[in-house]
């Protein structure tokens, strides 16, 4: 049996369907990513699984316990790191850690081996108030507090939002370390590049799951040819390309525009067409699809 099993789970807030018949399952020791923009329903799913809210319909179990009936037991087994920093800003690093250990009826020493790799990085600041920590340190403290009772499942809601690129990468290294200790993790992120570090990912949008697979599997679902195009005037380029025959879609992607090519797409013809339009420095080259390309394609479907 999988550690997390979700079956047609729905939750609405008034007229808004925050979560619409979502189903997925996460196996033991898996690092599972929920990838999607704001409003995709990621936080709602976390709040349901951590038993903070009840579903309207559907069912879900965590460690075999129903999220509605078994919520007391679930709370002892899971660790939750909310998207917003929610430790006591007026308590020090050490006091926060001791406080949360006490709430679970345990001591910091009992979970020290688990917490140590993370906590050691902020230990020099243990007498600093949590509110005065930098973003990356706050996030490490929050993770330490979420681990203090040796949870078997960890829910991390956008843990890297608002954190610098180096700290983000470090954070994913820490998650990899926890995975080695057989902790099951469900992580959400709006950053597509982080999806690569998950075992499996679910692409979510507007309360629905668009696809679940390994990062490589998701990318292999992209069944069209993809080109990157650039020119001196990127805006004119975008408009000119979108109306060209054989172009299924064209959207800005980093410093280029990506073209999803249809069956009758001819790169050389587009090149000539753009040059005739007066665009300079036109470059068209085939490129490899990324998760983001898949996401955009699935969203448009």
């Amino acid at each position: 049996m999988d550690v997390i099993e979700i079956n047609r789970l729905s939750k609405r807030y008034g007229q808004v369907r925050a979560l619409d018949e979502v189903s997925l399952s996460v196996g033991r020791g898996e690092l599972f990513g929920l990838i999607g923009p704001d409003g995709a329903g990621k936080t709602t799913l976390f709040r349901l699984l951590t038993t903070l809210i009840s579903p309207d319909s559907g069912a879900a179990t965590v460690e075999g316990l129903d999220i509605v009936h078994g919520y007391r037991r679930i709370r002892e087994l899971v660790g939750y790191m909310p998207g917003r920093f929610s430790l006591y800003p007026d308590l020090t690093v050490e006091e926060n850690l001791n406080f949360f250990a006490a709430l679970f009826g345990t001591h910091v020493q009992d979970a020290y081996d688990l917490v140590a790799p993370i906590y050691r990085q902020i230990e020099p600041f243990k007498n600093r108030r949590a509110g005065k920590l930098s973003g990356g340190m706050k996030q490490k403290l929050a993770l330490s507090c979420a681990l203090i009772h040796r949870p078997s499942v960890l829910f991390l809601d956008e843990p890297t939002t608002g954190v610098d690129a180096v700290s983000r990468s470090e954070f994913w290294d820490m998650l990899a370390g926890l995975k080695a200790k057989d902790i099951t993790m469900l992580v959400s992120t709006p950053y597509m590049d982080e999806a690569q570090r998950c075992d499996r990912i679910a692409l979510c949008n507007e309360g629905r799951i668009l696809g679940i697979d390994t990062p490589a599997g998701i990318v292999s679902r992209f069944d069209s040819r993809l080109y990157a195009v650039s020119a001196g005037n990127m805006f004119t380029l975008l408009q000119a390309t979108r109306t060209f025959e054989g172009v299924d879609a064209c959207y800005p992607f980093g410093s280029t525009h990506h073209i999803v090519a249809g069956g009758n797409f001819d790169a050389a013809a587009l090149d000539g067409h753009l040059k005739a339009d007066g665009l300079q420095d036109v470059r068209i080259a085939p490129c490899m699809p990324t998760i983001e390309d898949v996401f955009i394609k699935l969203m448009q479907r």
Partner: peptide
């Protein structure tokens, strides 16, 4: 308002 109560709510307290 600071969200700390949420962190308390997920504990068995």
């Amino acid at each position: 308002e600071t969200g700390t109560i949420e962190q308390i709510n997920v504990t068995p307290l």
